[in-house]
Design a protein around this nucleic acid. Structure first.
Lengths: 137, 137
DNA sequence: CTCGATTATTTACCTAGGTAAATATCAACT
DNA sequence: AGTTGATATTTACCTAGGTAAATAATCGAG
Protein backbone atom coordinates (compact mmCIF):
# COMPACT_ATOMS: atom_id res chain seq x y z
CA UNK A 1 0.00 0.00 0.00
CA UNK A 2 1.33 3.38 -1.01
CA UNK A 3 1.48 5.81 1.85
CA UNK A 4 2.04 8.91 -0.29
CA UNK A 5 -1.65 9.59 -0.61
CA UNK A 6 -1.93 9.61 3.15
CA UNK A 7 0.69 12.31 3.53
CA UNK A 8 -0.79 14.24 0.67
CA UNK A 9 -4.14 14.11 2.44
CA UNK A 10 -2.51 15.11 5.72
CA UNK A 11 -0.88 18.19 4.22
CA UNK A 12 -3.95 19.17 2.28
CA UNK A 13 -6.05 19.12 5.43
CA UNK A 14 -3.40 21.07 7.32
CA UNK A 15 -3.58 23.82 4.71
CA UNK A 16 -7.35 23.89 4.61
CA UNK A 17 -7.58 23.95 8.41
CA UNK A 18 -5.20 26.91 8.62
CA UNK A 19 -7.07 28.71 5.92
CA UNK A 20 -10.40 28.21 7.67
CA UNK A 21 -8.95 29.31 10.99
CA UNK A 22 -7.46 32.41 9.39
CA UNK A 23 -10.90 33.31 8.06
CA UNK A 24 -12.32 33.02 11.56
CA UNK A 25 -9.54 35.15 13.00
CA UNK A 26 -9.82 37.84 10.34
CA UNK A 27 -12.48 39.59 12.43
CA UNK A 28 -9.88 40.14 15.13
CA UNK A 29 -7.09 41.22 12.80
CA UNK A 30 -5.15 38.15 13.82
CA UNK A 31 -3.60 35.14 12.04
CA UNK A 32 -3.44 31.53 13.15
CA UNK A 33 0.33 31.62 13.66
CA UNK A 34 0.06 34.79 15.70
CA UNK A 35 -2.64 33.18 17.77
CA UNK A 36 -0.34 30.32 18.80
CA UNK A 37 2.10 32.89 20.18
CA UNK A 38 -0.66 34.88 21.86
CA UNK A 39 -2.02 31.66 23.37
CA UNK A 40 1.40 30.62 24.62
CA UNK A 41 2.17 33.98 26.22
CA UNK A 42 -1.27 34.13 27.83
CA UNK A 43 -0.73 30.80 29.57
CA UNK A 44 2.99 30.96 30.32
CA UNK A 45 3.47 34.68 30.95
CA UNK A 46 6.31 36.84 29.54
CA UNK A 47 8.91 34.86 27.64
CA UNK A 48 12.26 35.27 25.94
CA UNK A 49 12.10 34.84 22.16
CA UNK A 50 14.33 31.78 22.31
CA UNK A 51 11.95 30.13 24.75
CA UNK A 52 9.07 30.85 22.37
CA UNK A 53 10.60 29.34 19.23
CA UNK A 54 11.98 26.35 21.08
CA UNK A 55 8.58 25.72 22.64
CA UNK A 56 6.75 26.09 19.34
CA UNK A 57 9.43 24.15 17.46
CA UNK A 58 9.92 26.76 14.78
CA UNK A 59 13.14 28.58 13.88
CA UNK A 60 14.26 31.83 15.47
CA UNK A 61 13.78 34.08 12.41
CA UNK A 62 10.17 32.95 12.07
CA UNK A 63 9.40 34.16 15.57
CA UNK A 64 11.32 37.40 15.10
CA UNK A 65 9.21 38.28 12.07
CA UNK A 66 5.86 37.25 13.51
CA UNK A 67 6.55 39.19 16.71
CA UNK A 68 7.43 42.27 14.67
CA UNK A 69 4.02 42.11 13.02
CA UNK A 70 2.29 41.43 16.33
CA UNK A 71 4.08 44.35 17.95
CA UNK A 72 3.00 46.65 15.13
CA UNK A 73 -0.58 45.43 15.51
CA UNK A 74 -0.51 46.07 19.26
CA UNK A 75 -0.65 42.48 20.53
CA UNK A 76 2.75 42.32 22.24
CA UNK A 77 5.48 44.51 23.69
CA UNK A 78 9.21 43.82 23.30
CA UNK A 79 11.24 44.71 26.36
CA UNK A 80 15.01 44.44 26.81
CA UNK A 81 16.05 41.72 29.24
CA UNK A 82 18.62 42.05 32.03
CA UNK A 83 20.79 40.00 29.73
CA UNK A 84 21.00 42.61 27.00
CA UNK A 85 20.98 39.99 24.24
CA UNK A 86 17.52 38.88 25.22
CA UNK A 87 14.15 40.44 24.42
CA UNK A 88 11.33 39.77 26.85
CA UNK A 89 7.98 39.49 25.13
CA UNK A 90 4.73 40.21 26.94
CA UNK A 91 1.13 40.66 25.92
CA UNK A 92 -0.43 44.12 25.84
CA UNK A 93 -3.50 44.81 27.98
CA UNK A 94 -5.49 44.89 24.79
CA UNK A 95 -4.38 41.35 23.96
CA UNK A 96 -5.20 40.08 27.42
CA UNK A 97 -8.57 41.79 27.29
CA UNK A 98 -9.51 40.33 23.91
CA UNK A 99 -8.19 36.85 24.62
CA UNK A 100 -11.43 35.25 25.91
CA UNK A 101 -13.46 36.34 22.91
CA UNK A 102 -10.86 35.07 20.43
CA UNK A 103 -10.41 31.85 22.35
CA UNK A 104 -14.15 31.22 22.18
CA UNK A 105 -14.26 31.83 18.42
CA UNK A 106 -11.45 29.33 17.93
CA UNK A 107 -12.95 26.76 20.26
CA UNK A 108 -16.16 26.95 18.29
CA UNK A 109 -14.41 26.56 14.93
CA UNK A 110 -12.25 23.69 16.11
CA UNK A 111 -15.29 21.88 17.44
CA UNK A 112 -16.80 22.24 14.00
CA UNK A 113 -13.70 20.67 12.44
CA UNK A 114 -14.01 17.58 14.63
CA UNK A 115 -17.80 17.44 14.71
CA UNK A 116 -17.85 14.09 12.88
CA UNK A 117 -15.29 12.47 15.18
CA UNK A 118 -15.97 10.41 18.30
CA UNK A 119 -13.98 10.87 21.50
CA UNK A 120 -12.28 7.61 20.72
CA UNK A 121 -11.20 8.89 17.33
CA UNK A 122 -9.82 12.05 18.90
CA UNK A 123 -7.73 9.91 21.23
CA UNK A 124 -6.58 7.81 18.30
CA UNK A 125 -5.58 10.88 16.34
CA UNK A 126 -3.57 12.34 19.20
CA UNK A 127 -1.89 9.02 19.78
CA UNK A 128 -1.01 8.52 16.13
CA UNK A 129 0.35 12.05 15.72
CA UNK A 130 2.62 11.55 18.70
CA UNK A 131 3.92 8.32 17.21
CA UNK A 132 5.05 9.92 13.96
CA UNK A 133 8.79 9.59 13.78
CA UNK A 134 10.63 12.66 12.55
CA UNK A 135 14.39 12.56 12.76
CA UNK A 136 16.00 15.37 14.73
CA UNK A 137 12.77 16.37 16.43
CA UNK B 1 -10.66 18.17 27.16
CA UNK B 2 -9.32 21.07 25.14
CA UNK B 3 -8.92 20.30 21.47
CA UNK B 4 -6.56 23.22 20.74
CA UNK B 5 -3.53 21.17 21.71
CA UNK B 6 -4.55 18.55 19.20
CA UNK B 7 -4.60 21.04 16.33
CA UNK B 8 -1.39 22.59 17.53
CA UNK B 9 0.18 19.14 17.48
CA UNK B 10 -1.28 18.47 14.04
CA UNK B 11 0.18 21.64 12.54
CA UNK B 12 3.51 21.17 14.25
CA UNK B 13 3.86 17.70 12.77
CA UNK B 14 2.80 18.96 9.35
CA UNK B 15 5.60 21.53 9.43
CA UNK B 16 8.19 19.06 10.67
CA UNK B 17 7.18 16.47 8.09
CA UNK B 18 7.50 18.99 5.25
CA UNK B 19 10.84 20.13 6.57
CA UNK B 20 12.16 16.57 6.74
CA UNK B 21 10.87 15.79 3.26
CA UNK B 22 12.47 18.95 1.90
CA UNK B 23 15.79 17.81 3.33
CA UNK B 24 15.43 14.48 1.56
CA UNK B 25 14.55 16.20 -1.71
CA UNK B 26 17.39 18.69 -1.50
CA UNK B 27 19.67 16.17 -3.23
CA UNK B 28 17.45 16.37 -6.29
CA UNK B 29 17.06 20.14 -6.27
CA UNK B 30 13.37 19.68 -5.64
CA UNK B 31 10.90 20.81 -2.94
CA UNK B 32 7.98 18.92 -1.44
CA UNK B 33 5.37 21.16 -3.05
CA UNK B 34 7.02 20.79 -6.43
CA UNK B 35 7.08 17.05 -5.94
CA UNK B 36 3.30 16.91 -5.54
CA UNK B 37 2.95 18.58 -8.95
CA UNK B 38 5.58 16.34 -10.52
CA UNK B 39 3.86 13.30 -9.05
CA UNK B 40 0.47 14.42 -10.33
CA UNK B 41 1.69 15.10 -13.86
CA UNK B 42 3.57 11.80 -13.96
CA UNK B 43 0.43 9.85 -13.19
CA UNK B 44 -2.18 11.93 -15.00
CA UNK B 45 -0.19 13.18 -18.00
CA UNK B 46 -0.18 16.76 -19.35
CA UNK B 47 -2.63 19.05 -17.57
CA UNK B 48 -4.04 22.55 -17.76
CA UNK B 49 -3.03 24.72 -14.80
CA UNK B 50 -6.61 25.04 -13.65
CA UNK B 51 -6.91 21.25 -13.49
CA UNK B 52 -3.76 21.13 -11.40
CA UNK B 53 -4.79 23.65 -8.74
CA UNK B 54 -8.32 22.29 -8.51
CA UNK B 55 -6.97 18.79 -8.11
CA UNK B 56 -4.44 19.81 -5.46
CA UNK B 57 -6.94 22.13 -3.77
CA UNK B 58 -4.66 25.14 -3.77
CA UNK B 59 -5.27 28.53 -5.35
CA UNK B 60 -4.34 29.43 -8.92
CA UNK B 61 -1.52 31.88 -8.11
CA UNK B 62 0.22 29.29 -5.97
CA UNK B 63 0.43 26.91 -8.93
CA UNK B 64 1.47 29.69 -11.32
CA UNK B 65 4.44 30.52 -9.12
CA UNK B 66 5.53 26.98 -8.37
CA UNK B 67 5.36 26.08 -12.06
CA UNK B 68 7.47 29.10 -12.93
CA UNK B 69 10.17 27.81 -10.58
CA UNK B 70 9.81 24.26 -11.88
CA UNK B 71 10.07 25.46 -15.47
CA UNK B 72 13.22 27.40 -14.65
CA UNK B 73 14.67 24.29 -12.98
CA UNK B 74 13.86 22.15 -16.01
CA UNK B 75 11.13 19.93 -14.53
CA UNK B 76 8.21 21.06 -16.69
CA UNK B 77 7.39 22.76 -19.99
CA UNK B 78 4.57 25.26 -20.46
CA UNK B 79 2.85 24.98 -23.82
CA UNK B 80 0.01 27.13 -25.16
CA UNK B 81 -3.30 25.30 -25.40
CA UNK B 82 -5.65 25.36 -28.40
CA UNK B 83 -7.72 27.56 -26.18
CA UNK B 84 -5.23 30.40 -26.01
CA UNK B 85 -6.14 31.21 -22.41
CA UNK B 86 -4.90 27.85 -21.27
CA UNK B 87 -1.35 26.64 -20.64
CA UNK B 88 -0.70 22.94 -20.99
CA UNK B 89 1.90 21.69 -18.54
CA UNK B 90 3.95 18.59 -19.23
CA UNK B 91 6.98 16.99 -17.65
CA UNK B 92 10.38 17.22 -19.33
CA UNK B 93 12.21 14.02 -20.26
CA UNK B 94 14.61 14.78 -17.47
CA UNK B 95 11.74 14.82 -14.95
CA UNK B 96 10.33 11.55 -16.27
CA UNK B 97 13.76 9.98 -16.17
CA UNK B 98 14.50 11.00 -12.60
CA UNK B 99 11.05 10.20 -11.26
CA UNK B 100 11.72 6.61 -10.08
CA UNK B 101 14.76 7.57 -8.07
CA UNK B 102 12.98 10.47 -6.37
CA UNK B 103 9.89 8.37 -5.75
CA UNK B 104 12.01 5.75 -4.03
CA UNK B 105 13.70 8.33 -1.79
CA UNK B 106 10.32 9.64 -0.75
CA UNK B 107 8.84 6.22 -0.20
CA UNK B 108 11.74 5.39 2.07
CA UNK B 109 11.39 8.60 4.08
CA UNK B 110 7.64 8.27 4.44
CA UNK B 111 8.02 4.70 5.66
CA UNK B 112 10.36 6.04 8.28
CA UNK B 113 7.74 8.58 9.39
CA UNK B 114 5.18 5.85 9.98
CA UNK B 115 7.58 3.20 11.23
CA UNK B 116 5.95 3.16 14.67
CA UNK B 117 2.42 2.80 13.33
CA UNK B 118 0.48 -0.41 12.73
CA UNK B 119 -1.56 -0.98 9.58
CA UNK B 120 -4.65 -0.50 11.69
CA UNK B 121 -3.41 2.89 12.85
CA UNK B 122 -2.71 3.92 9.26
CA UNK B 123 -6.29 3.06 8.38
CA UNK B 124 -7.53 4.97 11.39
CA UNK B 125 -5.50 8.02 10.43
CA UNK B 126 -6.78 8.04 6.87
CA UNK B 127 -10.32 7.60 8.07
CA UNK B 128 -10.06 10.39 10.64
CA UNK B 129 -8.46 12.82 8.20
CA UNK B 130 -11.27 12.24 5.73
CA UNK B 131 -13.81 12.94 8.43
CA UNK B 132 -12.46 16.39 9.28
CA UNK B 133 -15.12 18.88 8.41
CA UNK B 134 -13.89 22.02 6.68
CA UNK B 135 -16.52 24.40 5.39
CA UNK B 136 -16.34 25.20 1.69
CA UNK B 137 -14.10 22.26 0.93
C1' DC C 1 41.48 41.55 32.24
C1' DT C 2 41.35 40.01 27.74
C1' DC C 3 40.40 36.81 24.09
C1' DG C 4 37.86 33.14 22.16
C1' DA C 5 33.64 30.55 22.24
C1' DT C 6 28.79 30.60 22.92
C1' DT C 7 24.18 32.50 22.83
C1' DA C 8 20.18 35.71 21.31
C1' DT C 9 18.51 38.18 17.81
C1' DT C 10 18.34 39.99 13.36
C1' DT C 11 19.07 40.37 8.27
C1' DA C 12 19.11 38.67 3.58
C1' DC C 13 17.45 35.46 0.57
C1' DC C 14 14.69 31.46 -0.59
C1' DT C 15 9.83 28.46 -1.12
C1' DA C 16 4.89 28.25 -0.30
C1' DG C 17 0.36 29.68 0.64
C1' DG C 18 -3.50 33.22 0.47
C1' DT C 19 -6.63 37.39 -1.54
C1' DA C 20 -7.90 40.94 -4.79
C1' DA C 21 -7.55 42.81 -9.01
C1' DA C 22 -5.77 43.08 -13.85
C1' DT C 23 -5.36 40.77 -18.59
C1' DA C 24 -6.49 38.07 -22.17
C1' DT C 25 -9.29 34.95 -24.50
C1' DC C 26 -13.41 32.63 -25.38
C1' DA C 27 -18.48 31.96 -25.72
C1' DA C 28 -22.95 33.22 -26.41
C1' DC C 29 -26.58 36.06 -27.57
C1' DT C 30 -28.82 39.80 -29.75
C1' DA D 1 -20.40 41.79 -35.78
C1' DG D 2 -20.31 43.69 -31.35
C1' DT D 3 -21.12 43.50 -26.56
C1' DT D 4 -21.45 41.16 -22.37
C1' DG D 5 -20.23 37.65 -19.23
C1' DA D 6 -17.41 33.87 -17.91
C1' DT D 7 -12.88 31.54 -17.64
C1' DA D 8 -7.51 31.02 -17.38
C1' DT D 9 -3.63 33.04 -16.04
C1' DT D 10 -0.90 36.47 -14.06
C1' DT D 11 0.48 40.39 -11.01
C1' DA D 12 0.83 42.85 -6.70
C1' DC D 13 0.74 42.51 -2.01
C1' DC D 14 0.25 39.98 2.29
C1' DT D 15 1.65 35.97 6.14
C1' DA D 16 4.53 32.04 7.30
C1' DG D 17 8.23 28.90 7.19
C1' DG D 18 13.23 27.66 6.24
C1' DT D 19 18.77 28.35 5.95
C1' DA D 20 23.06 30.87 6.28
C1' DA D 21 25.43 34.51 7.87
C1' DA D 22 25.95 38.94 10.49
C1' DT D 23 25.63 41.45 15.12
C1' DA D 24 25.71 42.01 19.71
C1' DA D 25 26.22 40.63 24.31
C1' DT D 26 27.72 37.26 27.70
C1' DC D 27 30.65 33.73 29.66
C1' DG D 28 34.89 31.40 30.89
C1' DA D 29 39.54 30.13 30.87
C1' DG D 30 44.01 31.56 31.16
Amino acid sequence: MDVSNLFHLYNQKARLLSKALNETLETFGLYASQWTILYTLYHKGPMIQTDIWRYLQVEAPTVTRTLTRMEKAGWVIRRDGTDKREKVIELTNQAIHKYPEIKEAIRSKENQFISALSNQELDQLRNILEKLYIEGE
